[in-house]
Design a protein around this nucleic acid. Structure first.
Ligand SMILES: NC(=O)c1ccc[n+]([C@@H]2O[C@H](COP(=O)([O-])OP(=O)(O)OC[C@H]3O[C@@H](n4cnc5c(N)ncnc54)[C@H](O)[C@@H]3O)[C@@H](O)[C@H]2O)c1
Ligand SMILES: NC(=O)c1ccc[n+]([C@@H]2O[C@H](COP(=O)([O-])OP(=O)(O)OC[C@H]3O[C@@H](n4cnc5c(N)ncnc54)[C@H](O)[C@@H]3O)[C@@H](O)[C@H]2O)c1
Lengths: 256, 256
DNA sequence: TCATCTTTGTGCACGCGTTCACAAAGGCAT
DNA sequence: ATGCCTTTGTGAACGCGTGCACAAAGATGA
């Protein structure tokens, strides 16, 4: 579940809110772009616009990292890039393994965005013996038998799962037993992991379904305005009341 | 153009909290699995476990949909599947276009999870003339010149962007101008869209960076125990210690 | 019919995250 | 130096989401 409740009593000073942590990569990306254009400083307003967030939120986020800005001027781009990188742990190189080299796994392996940010594909692992040795994105695929050895030899602590859903739980258990403590899961399954292991999931179906919900709502409101009724009849406690909010919005954070 | 800098009183769809909407697909998946095993009813406790959430949260979520449970018994699986599907708008078929048929786009096109849930790949679109006509996942790729026509002819309202980051904003503008009102963006860019358009993004780099942050913190706490400072731990380290973590499960995708 | 037992539905309290609004800080020109 | 102007950093208010705890609902069996 989400960032828990009564966790640890100490280390409040280092306690950067989870929501802030999730935005740091966004700021970092915007700052990197500015850095490449040799822009020396940015105001919270400009940077917030580039990152697509509220400027007050950005300032508060940065306040958790310390006071790196200069009033009346803004933030020093290079310095901030460094500070955020350090905070995110990107000043070191993180070896990552990808398990399940099918359509998606291969695409991930080919993705250049890994190396560009301190991540290095240490190994590609698949259960299919026919794939063993075959190079994907220049890296030879290794068999799952080697999984534990690979993890340990390379000191891998982050694993990416791109296997079919049915295999994901088992794969996660092997990864964790071998030393992995962070998993990015692309398989549409709820992984059950011990405490201390972080799991983040990327689920295409869920995203589409959320979009579909909003699409339907938009269509419903539209139809409601013209008197038509598109949605099926509610069976119970029918809330004939349709909200026709002025919203046009969007966001929604998804919890676990 | 219009960067939405207007704040809305938050999206109150139809009274269903956004956080709940984001969990409905999760429940639906668990329920579908039960349905396939011909399980007639489930308690909130069981279903919550299967979906990886708190049972009280699940009950509260369902309460927004109406009272579909029976006290002392639980929920009727089939009925609930229907209700949630209807709520999410999955009783109708949503045509979807994928723009940018590279590594990732091709993987998405090959993904079976689309059709299984009311989504249909209406077209694959790419700017590379060399790809035009080539079939990917059984569907011929069409050139971007056709984009507007494709969207309109098929009544597409949901678009998936898998182009390089540099092209994403422009592609989104064309999609929106042609009638798309929901976008799932895989490109690492902040899309600026007019009000009324929903954007959800999936960003691998961000997910990995968030995981890296937690990894670093875990390593830091470990080191702290041995007298080190709480700041930048030089090297990632050692043995994956299984201590208390922040959480066991986290979200992955974020709103636009 | 009535008692018992299970499980729902929800009132309530709490904490996190967001946003507003503004005082203080600092640069810069005079 | 002094005053002006810009922008930060944050106190405070507010709303959303979460989870506890329990009364009410309803099934089941005697
Ligand atoms: N392709 C997509 O766009 C997409 C989108 C969203 C989610 N997903 C999910 O990602 C996963 C992979 O999708 P895909 O399209 O690449 O599937 P795929 O069938 O093309 O690839 C799966 C790969 O995993 C390997 N594998 C199977 N069991 C394994 C095991 N126990 N250990 C190691 N490797 C194993 C298979 O040999 C195969 O190479 C699936 O769970 C899918 O639902 C895919
Ligand atoms: N591959 C991954 O695993 C992965 C992971 C995360 C994010 N991404 C992002 O997804 C996007 C696609 O990644 P990829 O690896 O598939 O890249 P790719 O280069 O393999 O594919 C990009 C495709 O988009 C097409 N394209 C370019 N401009 C276009 C335009 N204006 N209109 C239509 N099509 C256009 C290209 O012809 C190409 O076929 C990138 O933004 C990447 O950063 C990819």
């Amino acid at each position: 579940m989400a960032t828990g409740r009564n966790h640890r009593p100490a280390t409040r000073s280092r306690g950067i809110p989870e929501a802030t942590v999730a935005r740091l990569p966004l700021y970092l990306r915007a700052l990197t772009a500015l850095s490449e254009r040799s822009v020396p400083t940015v105001s919270s307003e400009e940077l917030a616009a580039a990152a697509g967030v509220n400027s007050a939120k950005l300032r508060k986020d940065f306040s958790y990292l310390g006071s790196y800005g200069t009033r009346g001027v803004g933030y020093d781009v290079e310095y901030l890039v460094y500070q955020i990188s350090r905070e995110l742990g990107l000043t070191q190189d993180w070896p990552v393994v990808i398990v399940g080299i099918g359509n998606l796994g291969a695409a991930l392996a080919n993705y250049g965005g890994f190396a560009s940010r301190g991540f290095r594909v240490a190994a590609l692992i698949d259960a299919d013996p026919a794939m063993a040795g075959k190079p994907v994105a220049g890296i030879p695929v290794q068999h799952t038998d080697e999984l534990e050895k690979i993890i340990k030899d390379n000191g891998v602590s982050i694993g990416v799962i791109a296997t079919p859903a049915g295999a994901a739980q088992q794969v996660s258990e092997r990864l964790i037993a071998a030393g992995v403590t962070s998993i990015l899961n692309f398989a549409p399954t709820v992984l059950s992991v011990p405490e201390g292991v972080d799991v983040r999931k990327v689920d295409l179906s869920i995203e589409l379904q959320i979009l579909a919900f909003h699409e339907q709502r938009k269509a419903g409101e539209e139809a409601a305005a013209s008197g038509a009724d598109v949605t099926p009849p509610p069976l119970r406690g029918g809330p004939a009341a349709n909200r026709k909010g002025p919203d046009g919005d969007v966001p929604a954070v998804m919890p676990a």
